[in-house]
Structure formats: structure tokens, C-alpha cells
Design a protein around this nucleic acid. Structure first.
Lengths: 335, 335
DNA sequence: CTGAAAGCGCTAACAT
DNA sequence: ATGTTAGCGCTTTCAG
């Protein structure tokens, strides 16, 4: 391994001069810079990041921990965050937690350990008890659902409003027996996504004068298989369903598959709407109606909150929260 | 920031004892360990990764550089690689290159800089001139297309065979005017994916006695939009196309969308088959036929090649290559 | 504009 | 079973 020492010797200068060249410091004579750069090229030198971070106390890297990289929503999120982080001079690297509580806790621990300068955590399984871990000195922004009430830097979307918009849309198209897939009838105090979105759905139905039927609210894993299986059971048990609000687009894709396998047409027999508005939606057959949060605003808020923490601009103990607005994207699946 | 010194002082032991506890070394008395762990908890201590890597000369992290995280194939790949790397005690972090040559070069440079122990690079835009960068002391495995001929550790799939399988399948279903979307009629020496897959397509058509028509081979960006636009142009210009082989599943999804927009049915009017066999395929309407490489074998080969390099098991200058077998997954889109 | 010295936090090697 | 020493490669600080 080549070190700065080696380069300095080769170029006949001191290590400090090499360091100054590498870090684009201004006060280096052109001829010296040339000489050093030539030596760097000749020796194939690369800065050692470990030594640099140890010395500087920062890494220039932000971590993103998500449950599954292999899901369209997280792919989109990662892309936007990478772009936004780059604008603030940070690189972003992605870690997968597998939506398991222990792995999410690991990600927090490791991001200190690995010396990311901060962490964007999309938590799926953390609870109030764990929330204390998220406090303290290390910069963390929690994205999406919370599942706990403690104060934190936090970015989410208007879940209840989105579900209400989607439900109203289904009603306005003529659906009356509307199911909620990937929903949950929880305590009103619960603030997990499933409960929040189901809350919006209930409100919209009530406003439309449609009686609530708990049998129409079904749990579903947020995967293709989860959507397919839950929709299959639903349809087999309740024949007159004519609209399905899915908690995520991935669930909706699974649900549309189940409907097709049973010979039901979308939207003629059953209207389907998803949540998240991932790029894929517009290319499906039929194209999938969805609720679109302002993804860019979310990425923007998350990174700016984090950089404020990293730079120490905001006082510890003073937390920010951002709720992205949502809008309806009506497509063929609810025509 | 709390250091090992602080913990040692707090626990009334030496730093080495703290280090031994943290690293699960055996020769520590239980009572001592308890004491140290208590101090660690009390002070909220976390190991500093920069200092550790600087000292040990390794990080335990493998980088994965892909053009776009927001594409199903790379999501799948990342998931499998993460799992496989964990089995060898490595964490894997993902970086996005944007399929731009400069960013790919950056990823190489940075992965040395950031002291990953090795890099899995899915290169889309690197050429022979850059290949020298991939040599040298740093452990790199190139995944997928190469675009250059220099010796390297390299993992790919049987591209030509896959395209031939897909073409034969379309022929056996009754298609005769078969287009290749995302293809390229290159020099036979070219080894980019587009040319390789187009080669398999040509061979299969020739074997079936179907004359080659260069107008049926179309370039396409490997995105939903790319597939939709290229398929739209194709259909508008050549009305009697009855089969489309797409270079990737994402292109196929875009193509199916374009067909639907023109009132053409899949598979009744036009059969469509993709490449990569991403999990989404089985949930589409119609479900998408595809060519499935042995994804797990590819992940396995890539990580084992890399760990061999990292551990120095394999001699520098001695390169390995792995070609994953492919098989046909026939689904509704080619029924 | 360039250089010398000190030390970031940790662990390998060697005592005790 | 525990402690001491040295140094990984870099940059901050201060001198020249």
C-alpha cells in the first residue's frame, strides 16, 4: 500500500505538501502541485479514508437503512436521497434491515460504529422502547411510519389524508363495497401506517354514508405475495367487493394479480388503487391509480434535517417534523 | 465522544481489556467483563470504526456499485449479494453510479478511498481503456456485461443462449415476425449485452429458417420509458410484428404498455418475452415470460471470487470467470 | 508557500 | 488474565 510518505519521498517534498495538493488547498505553487500529482499517478496512490476520518472526525457519508432494497418504493426513495445528499456534499450508502427489529437496531449501532456522519432510518419495526436509542448525540432522521411517540426528527406523508382521497375517489367512481388491504383497525392512538391509512379510509366512507364493515379491512404483508394472498382470501369470502384500497402499490399489484386469477376485471368488476405512486404504476396493465406523496420534498426534508444535526446548526433536544402532502393520481385501475 | 480510554478509566481497567471485551476475546474473567460492559452501557460507548480500520487494515465492508438502485434487477441482485456477503462476515453497502462512465470510475476510486475491502461493480459504460483501472492490487469483481476484453474477475450469464432460448420459444408458439428490443447488431467481437443477446436471437431465427430483418432489431434504453417508446415506434412502422424479445424485463414492461396503448393484445396479437426473471414478472398482467439466470449462483460466485482476492487466497494475475446458466420461464405473455 | 511534530482511537505483539 | 508500548496514515497546529 502506498502512503503519503511514499508520495512525498518520490516527489521530494513533505507529506504536508502532498496533503495540501490532495485536498485542493490554495497555497501550493503550480510547479509543486504538478510534481506531486505526477508522483501520485506514478505510484498509484489513493488516500486512506480510515486515517482521514480518524483525524477529521467525519466521513462524508450518510447511511440509509431500509427494510428491503428490492421494493420499488425504496428504490425510488434511495435514488432521490442520493441525489439530494450529493448536493450537500455527502455520499449515501444503503443498508438493508430486512424489516427486522434486531437488524434495525443493528443499523443504528453500526452506523455509529462505522462512522457514518448520520443515518436516515426507514423503521418498520421499532417501538417506543427502542426510541431512546434514536435520541442522544448521533444524527438520525426517521422516515415513514414511526410506531412510537417520542420526539424525533421525523419525515412522513399525510397518510390519513391520502387514504381518504383514495376512498373518496373509489366512491366517486361508483364503488360501494370498498375493502382496505394491508389495513389495520387499531387504537386511534396508534400511529403505524396501517392504522393511520385505515383511519382515513373509515372517515371517507363515513362521510360518504357508507357503513363500516370490519370484515373488509384485511392485514397484508407489504409484498406482491402478501397482496395477492390477502386479496384472494377477501374475494373468496366476500363476493360483492367492488373496490380495493391497498396500503401500498406493491400490495395493489399482488391484489390485481389475484383478481385476474379469479376472472375478475379491473376496473370493470373491481376498482383498485394503491399508495406511494412508484414509477412502475404508469406502466402496468391496467395502469395503477395511486396516492402520490411529494417524494422530492420528503427527500429534501430528510437530508436537510440530517445536515442540520451533523453541522450542529440545530440545538440537541430540538426536534423537527415534516409531513409531505399527497395527491391523487387517477389511472386506468379506477376508471 | 466517548473513547476506550474513558471506558477503561470508568471501569478501572486498561484499554486492552476493554478492547478484548468489545472483540469477544476469550481470556477475560467474567467479573471483569461485566464491569466493562456496565461502563460501556453507562457511558454510551461505541467503537470508532475509522480507528479500528486504520489499525487493522480492513473494514469488513464490500461495496456494490450499480447503475440504478431503482431497477428491479439490481434490487434483486443487491438482496442476494447482501445475504451471501453476510455469510462470509462482510457487510455490503450499495452505491449508485447512474450508468455514467465517470461515476463508475469514481466508484472504483472511492472504494479504495473509502476502504471497502472489495468492490462488486456492475459496469455499464466502462471500456477497454478503463480496464487497467480494474486491475492492480484492489479486489474488484465485474458483474454482468463487460464491454472490454482484458482479463478480470468476472461474473455473467449465458446471454446468447438465453436469447436463443427465448427466440426459439416465440417461434414454437407460432410467432414469425419477431423483433429484438434493446438489441444491437454489433461487430461479432463486441461483448456488450445488447450485441450478445442479439447474437443469440439471430442464431435461433436462422436455425428456424426465419430470415433476418435488421429493421426488427431496435435499440432501447433499459428503462420502462425506453421499452415503451421503442416498442411504439416499432409497431407504428412495422405492422405485422407478432413477437418481441426484450433485452430486459423492464424493457418488456414498457413494451407491453405500448402495445396496450395501441389496442394490441398480449399474447393474442403479439407475444412478449423479457430477460432477467425479476420477481415482479409473475405478478404482471399478463404475467411476463422471461429468461432466468441462476441469480444465486451469480451472487455466490461474485462474493467468493471477491473474498478469495481479499484474503489473498488467489494469486494476483490469476483471474476467474463464471457464466451462470439460464432457463426459460414461460408465462402468460407468450401463451 | 512549505515543513516538523503531535496525536486522532484503536489493536497486534509482547510483557507481566 | 491483564497491562504496556508502539504505530496504522492522515491532518491540525504552529514555525519557518
Amino acid at each position: 500500500m502506498t502512503t503519503m510518505q511514499d508520495v512525498a519521498r518520490h516527489a521530494g517534498v513533505s507529506v504536508m505538501t502532498v496533503s495540501n495538493v490532495v485536498n485542493h488547498h490554495p497555497h501550493v505553487r503550480d510547479s509543486t502541485r504538478e510534481k506531486v500529482l505526477a508522483s501520485i499517478a506514478a505510484l498509484g496512490y489513493h488516500v486512506n479514508a480510515a486515517a482521514r476520518s480518524l483525524r477529521q472526525g467525519r466521513t462524508g457519508v450518510i447511511g440509509l437503512a431500509v427494510p428491503e432494497v428490492d421494493r420499488p418504493y425504496f428504490g425510488l426513495l434511495a435514488t432521490l436521497l442520493i441525489e439530494r445528499a450529493a448536493r450537500d456534499g455527502f455520499e449515501l450508502v444503503i443498508e438493508q434491515t430486512g424489516a427486522r427489529r434486531d437488524r434495525e437496531l443493528d443499523a443504528i449501532t453500526r452506523s455509529r460504529l462505522r462512522s457514518y456522519d448520520g443515518l436516515v432510518l426507514h423503521a418498520a419495526e421499532l417501538h417506543d422502547d427502542d426510541a431512546t436509542l434514536l435520541r442522544g448525540d448521533f444524527p438520525i432522521v426517521v422516515l415513514g411510519e414511526r410506531g412510537y411517540t417520542s420526539p424525533l426528527d421525523h419525515v412522513e406523508m399525510a397518510n390519513a389524508k391520502g387514504a381518504a382521497l383514495a376512498s373518496e375517489h373509489l366512491v366517486s367512481r361508483g364503488s360501494r363495497r370498498i375493502a382496505m388491504l394491508g389495513g389495520r383497525v387499531g387504537d386511534p392512538d396508534d400511529i403505524d401506517v396501517a392504522t393511520l391509512r385505515t383511519g382515513g379510509y373509515r372517515e371517507a366512507l363515513a362521510a360518504a354514508g357508507i357503513p363500516f364493515d370490519a370484515a373488509l379491512v384485511r392485514a397484508a404483508a407489504y409484498t406482491f405475495e402478501g397482496g395477492r394472498d390477502a386479496a384472494g382470501l377477501l374475494i373468496d369470502e366476500i363476493a360483492d367487493v367492488d373496490g380495493i384500497l391497498c396500503a401500498t402499490d406493491v400490495v395493489a399489484i399482488g391484489a390485481m394479480r389475484a383478481l385476474r386469477e379469479r376472472g375478475l376485471r379491473v376496473p370493470e368488476d373491481v376498482r383498485v388503487i394503491g399508495f406511494d405512486d412508484v414509477p412502475l404504476d404508469a406502466f402496468l396493465t391496467p395502469s395503477l391509480s395511486s396516492i402520490a406523496p411529494d417524494h422530492e420534498a420528503m427527500a429534501d426534508a430528510a437530508i436537510s434535517m440530517l445536515t442540520e444535526r451533523i453541522s450542529g446548526t440545530r440545538a440537541p433536544g430540538e426536534y423537527r417534523s415534516f409531513v409531505a402532502d399527497v395527491r391523487l393520481m387517477a389511472r386506468e385501475s379506477t376508471a
